[in-house]
Simulated scan of single mutants.
Amino acid sequence: MITIHDIHQARKQITEIIHETPIIKSQQLSAICGNDIYLKGEHLQKTGAFKIRGATNKVKQVVKDGATFVTAASSGNHGQAVAYIANVLGVSATIVVPEDATWSKIQAIEAYNGKIEKCGFTSAERLPRAQELAREKDGVYIPPYDDPFIIAGQGTVGLEILEQLDDVDVVVVPIGGGGLISGILTVIKETKPNVKVIGVEPEIANDTLLSLEKGEITTIPETRTIADGLRTSQPGDVTFPIVQKYLDELVLVSEEEIRQALFFVLERMKQLIEPSSAVTVAAAMFGKLGVKDKKVTCVLSGGNVDVRKLGEIFPE
């Protein structure tokens, strides 16, 4: 498992690339939730999501080791991050995306000089193809979450939360493959173990919940949740033991709850976030956290939503 030392080392590696993102407070959201709600704004991060943290830490390492070509398998945000940092460091990148990848995310990858290859609809289809491309071109595959350097980079979100709100009681984090939450868990539980960490999954993408219940990594079929960044088939081999060890609670939110939370943040707070970010707000808004009168930080993981598809998310 990674340690707090690994995360501090990651911060040194990535600090010149990333933004320290703000904590946003909403009085209206706090009143609705019965808690002091703070939003950690990773939707305002470079490339529009937290993924740049882990990608920068990992790609810097492999380039230091001599890599000149990298690949990634991504529904968008990880791919953007890998393409961005590869371009900064002067190495080539090919990103394997699902057939239904958001147009805006594909456009962003290409803007960072990343090449696109489409493959299937699930991570189980994309990952082998990206690994194959890396072997074919003597490159390095950059995993989206299941890697110590990736996890350590994502853990820097947790360092910032504790520095920006040192009396926080609860931190709420989206769960896809587990890279973000395992990094944040490591920081918080090795620094302030009394701070409660709650993970959130969509009801129809509950692979981590099922894995925790069964005590082993469990795979689910393809899911079509609107929270496309959380469409993983199973938790990672590296991330899952960290989640098992440290996670206080995992809750589920429905597709409609995700929509309503997304709409609230957009309409009332004037913040454009993606559905994967909205799961943490949904958990707070709909009473899933089981706490009252606490200082709660909800991590907004990204903001890379295709604005032309908002009408599909919010049908009349």
Rank of each mutant, 00 (worst) to 15 (best):
L29R: 13
L29N: 15
V70D: 07
T208N: 08
A227Y: 08
F69Y: 15
V59H: 06
G183I: 13
A93E: 06
R231P: 02
Q27R: 12
I184E: 04
Q28C: 11
Y112E: 04
K270H: 15
G179R: 11
I7M: 07
V70N: 10
T15R: 15
G215W: 15
P221D: 10
L230N: 11
G287E: 14
T102F: 05
Q234H: 15
T297S: 00
T186S: 03
F69L: 13
F121P: 02
L210W: 03
I37Y: 05
G183L: 14
V296I: 07
E249T: 11
E190V: 05
I273Y: 01
E203F: 04
A10R: 08
R129W: 04
L262S: 09
E110Y: 10
K294Q: 11
V291H: 02
A81C: 08
Y141A: 03
L209H: 06
G177M: 10
F240Y: 11
Q9I: 10
I85A: 04
L262M: 12
G114Y: 03
N57P: 02
V253P: 08
K40R: 05
V170S: 04
E117I: 11
S123T: 09
L159A: 05
F149G: 08
V279Y: 02
L180D: 00
T122S: 15
E249G: 08
E160S: 01
V307G: 04
R224E: 14
N35Q: 08
V91L: 08
L247N: 03
G79D: 09
A93P: 03
R224D: 13
A108E: 09
Q28P: 07
R231L: 12
G153A: 02
I106A: 11
I4D: 01
V88G: 06
K118W: 12
Q61D: 15
K118M: 13
L210I: 13
V197G: 00
D169C: 01
I217P: 12
L29S: 14
M269S: 05
I217E: 08
T208D: 11
M269T: 02
D167N: 10
F121Y: 15
E203P: 09
I181E: 00
Q234V: 09
E125I: 02
Q45K: 03
T94R: 10
N113P: 04
H43A: 09
T225P: 00
